[in-house]
């Protein structure tokens, strides 16, 4: 009963943020824009016949067409709009949840209820994720339906993007909450979360460089440090890869035309990175990232529970 009350409160608090409506508008705009595009045998129709682009791309078979649509959905639409813009909006919108909870006059009533502090903390933490859960569902759900009904391509695996984006947000939100509990400052929480996200991505990119440039592995200390760091930090860059894999989207490299300037060697190396990324074990990447998240949440929860208000 208490947990449900705090989840409902999480939704109400999310709904009260202006950014909630901005994100809703964004989701509906993307779905509407997609709806205005139709794939015909002779090309692409935009705005119900206003413009037509002639191409034979969509005559090359249903399987390839499904691959392309899945790639467009996951890599171009979900990853860019939801995975970047959406997550940043969610970080900003939810950063104030814990500082508000811990304000004088607010926290006293909550702590006087027959609920352990860790329970209150966890319920509030999970309740805050409702913000992105609602939007991920609306965004993915609407684009999924448009792709199915309008484009004739159903990509059920694309729906798994919903939990994956929420998972990505949770990797970052734990940092936001930790900063919020220590500083009670929403601005500090946003800034340090974005710094942490950049750091997580950098750690993974450095590790990818060792695959792209195998000769660098000779620097054993640097290589081992990179490997260790990769397993410690949340693997935020693995989320779009998992989304792509589960949606059965084509690898980006497969769609990349061979450029003489780049050359076959570079393409081979890019393929190696892509292969290494696609070979990641979901349980391993998610599990190790959740371990990091659990550690950070425990730290924040400890501080929250030990504090006098």
């Amino acid at each position: 009963m208490q947990f449900l009350a705090l989840m409902i409160d999480g939704f109400r608090e999310s709904r009260d943020r202006k950014l909630f409506w901005v994100m809703l508008l964004m989701s509906l705009s993307v779905a509407s824009a997609m709806f205005c595009v139709a794939f015909k045998p002779n090309g692409v129709d935009i705005l119900f016949g206003t413009w037509q682009i002639e191409t034979d791309v969509f005559t090359i078979g249903d399987e390839v067409r499904a691959d392309i649509v899945a790639t467009v959905l996951v890599e171009w639409i979900a990853d860019t709009i939801l995975g970047w813009i959406g997550v940043i909006i969610a970080i900003i919108a939810t950063a104030g949840f814990f500082p508000t909870l811990m304000e004088r006059g607010v926290v006293e009533v909550l702590l006087s209820k027959p609920m352990p502090r860790w329970g209150l903390f966890l319920a509030k933490y999970l309740g805050s994720m409702v913000f992105l859960l609602v939007h991920a569902t609306i965004f993915v759900g609407s684009t999924f339906l448009v792709a199915g009904f309008r484009w004739g391509v159903w990509v059920p695996g694309y729906l798994l993007t919903i939990p994956l984006v929420v998972l990505l947000f949770s990797y970052l939100y734990c940092v936001s909450v930790l900063v919020a509990v220590y500083t009670r400052n929403a601005m500090a929480a946003v800034l340090l979360t974005l710094v942490a996200w950049t750091m997580f991505a950098t750690v993974q990119s450095v590790d990818d460089m060792f695959v792209f440039m195998p000769e660098w592995k000779e620097y054993r200390t640097a290589y081992q440090a990179s490997q260790t760091a990769r397993w410690i930090v949340p693997k935020t860059q693995d989320i779009p890869i998992l989304a792509k894999r589960w949606a059965k989207a084509a690898a980006a490299v497969e769609l990349m035309p061979i450029n003489e300037e780049v050359g076959h060697k570079m393409r081979d190396r890019a393929e190696a990175v892509e292969r290494a990324r696609m070979a990641i074990h979901p349980a391993l990447t998610i599990g190790s990232s959740l371990l990091f998240e659990a550690f950070v949440v425990m730290l924040a929860m400890w501080k929250f529970s030990r504090k006098d208000y």
Partner: peptide
Amino acid sequence: GKLAATGYLPENHRFPGY
């Protein structure tokens, strides 16, 4: 159990405005 049987009004309390 006893907290559940206690009512509390803190000084300068604030409820969520939404």
